[in-house]
Amino acid sequence: MSYFTEENSADAVNARIGADTDPRLREVMTALVKHLHAFARDITLTQDEWDYAIGFLTRTGQMCSDERQEFILLSDVLGFSMLVDSINNRRPAGATENTVFGPFHVADAPIREMGANISLDGKGESCLFEGRVLDLDGNPIKGACIDVWSDNADGYYDVQQPGIQPKWNNRGRFFTGADGRYSFRGIKPVSYPIPDDGPVGQMLGHLGRHPFRPAHMHYLVIAPGFQKLVTHTFVGGDEYLTSDAVFGVKQSLIAPYERLEGADTVWRSPFDFVLVPG
Rank of each mutant, 00 (worst) to 15 (best):
T99M: 07
N8D: 15
A31G: 08
D197L: 01
E7Q: 15
F104C: 05
G225T: 12
H37K: 08
H37Q: 11
A245F: 05
M203I: 04
E258P: 01
G94V: 14
V230Q: 13
L275I: 02
R91P: 06
I194F: 08
A109K: 11
L25P: 01
P189N: 11
K142M: 09
Q227I: 00
A215S: 09
R90C: 06
W50Y: 11
F273D: 00
A31C: 01
Q62E: 11
R213D: 02
Q47T: 08
Y3V: 07
V28A: 15
I54G: 08
Q227K: 06
I43S: 10
T46K: 06
G143F: 00
L136P: 01
G172S: 09
A12C: 07
F80V: 14
L57R: 08
D196H: 10
A19N: 15
S86V: 01
V235D: 11
Q165P: 02
V246H: 01
F234C: 03
K188A: 03
Q227M: 03
R91V: 14
I87C: 09
F101S: 06
D135M: 04
P92A: 05
D197I: 02
T60L: 03
R68G: 04
Y156L: 09
P166R: 07
V274Q: 07
R181Y: 07
M82Y: 10
Y52Q: 06
L253M: 14
D66W: 09
F271R: 02
V28D: 12
V190Y: 00
D179A: 03
E97Q: 13
R41W: 03
P270R: 12
M217K: 02
F175L: 15
F174A: 00
F212D: 00
G55E: 14
Q47P: 05
A93Y: 08
E70G: 05
I87E: 10
R26F: 14
Y192N: 06
I194P: 04
Y240C: 07
R68V: 06
L207G: 02
P199F: 09
V33R: 10
L32M: 11
F71L: 12
H105P: 01
L128N: 00
F234D: 04
G225W: 09
A19F: 10
Y3E: 02
R59D: 07
P195S: 13
S183C: 11
A178I: 08
K188I: 03
I72A: 14
Y157Q: 01
G124N: 00
L253E: 07
G225Y: 05
P214A: 15
Q160E: 14
D121V: 12
A178H: 11
V249P: 00
